[in-house]
């Protein structure tokens, strides 16, 4: 394949587009270093006071740890459920397979506000509101379709002859799965894990319905904070969130290259 040199006008257009997309995100960095007491750009003085304030804010810190552990648990559960499910969907032939697959990935298409309302109504009767279990279950509804879809695509493009070769060499079905299928699926698993983690960590709409004074996640806490106060603390929090996201992506990149994890 030949890579063409981008022409100058095209280069400028791309730069403008990127600037348009990233400007608000970039703006957050100077604002987080503001010494002012209100959100304002450009800041009139500079300091780290809002980072200090953030680390002294117990509610924020608590919400951060809730979000982190929630995202971790949801990611692990998503994989534990989606890997075997994807295997069954891709490798087994049975009636209604396509229907089942579409059903499992349907939440991707539903408006999240509708999902949130529905989950609120159902969870209320089970006493799952404002509990960790409730949040985990709700987040799984959104992360599972992503995981299932990514893993199904990975599995479908995997060379089945490798599994067959393992069988002919004497490997029993479970051995084939753990020694051949699963290791070959690693790029898909890493991609699915990264996406599940970020989706869960980032989720606001559904979580809003399920959180309360007892338990809250970082995005919801930030939302509430901005609702009441307009100081640069949220900017400091945003910067840390951006860095965390970048960190996750870097890990994926280091592990296998982004292209391979998400595109293949």
């Amino acid at each position: 394949m030949q890579i063409h040199k981008t022409s100058k006008p095209m280069g400028i257009l791309v730069a403008v587009l990127f600037l348009y997309l990233l400007a608000p995100v970039i703006l957050v960095f100077p604002i987080s270093l503001s010494g002012d007491s209100v959100l304002r750009f450009p800041p009139t003085s500079w300091s780290l006071r809002w980072y200090e304030a953030l680390f002294e804010n117990r509610a924020m810190l608590g919400a951060f740890w809730t979000s982190l552990s929630l995202a971790a648990i949801v990611t692990v559960l998503s994989l534990v459920i989606a890997v075997p499910a994807a295997w069954v969907m891709v490798r087994m032939e049975f009636r209604g397979r396509d229907l089942l697959f579409n059903l499992f990935t349907a939440p991707l298409l539903l408006p999240t506000i509708v999902l949130g309302l529905a989950i609120l109504i159902v969870f209320a009767s089970f006493g799952l509101l404002a509990t960790m279990q409730g949040l985990i279950l709700a987040h799984l509804v959104i992360t599972l379709p992503y995981a299932l879809r990514i893993l199904a695509v990975s599995l479908a493009t995997q060379n089945m002859a490798c599994e067959e070769a393992a069988k002919t060499l004497g490997a029993k079905p479970l051995t084939v799965f753990f020694r051949v299928t699963l290791p070959m699926l690693t790029p898909g698993i890493v991609a699915a894990a990264a996406l599940c983690f970020l989706v869960s960590f980032d989720e606001v709409v559904i979580t809003l319905f399920l959180t309360g004074p007892r338990i809250s996640t970082l995005p919801v806490e930030l939302y509430n904070y901005v609702y009441n106060t307009a100081d640069p603390l949220v900017a400091a929090a945003s910067v840390l969130l951006i860095l965390l996201t970048l960190g996750v992506i870097l890990v994926v990149e280091r592990a296998m290259g982004l292209g391979r994890a998400f595109v293949k």
């Binding site: 060379n159 002859a161 490798c162 067959e164 070769a165 290791p183 070959m184």
Partner: peptide, 9 residues
């Protein structure tokens, strides 16, 4: 196998 089917990992 035609594709050799070597285990890539």
């Amino acid at each position: 196998f035609q594709s050799y089917a070597l285990f890539p990992h």
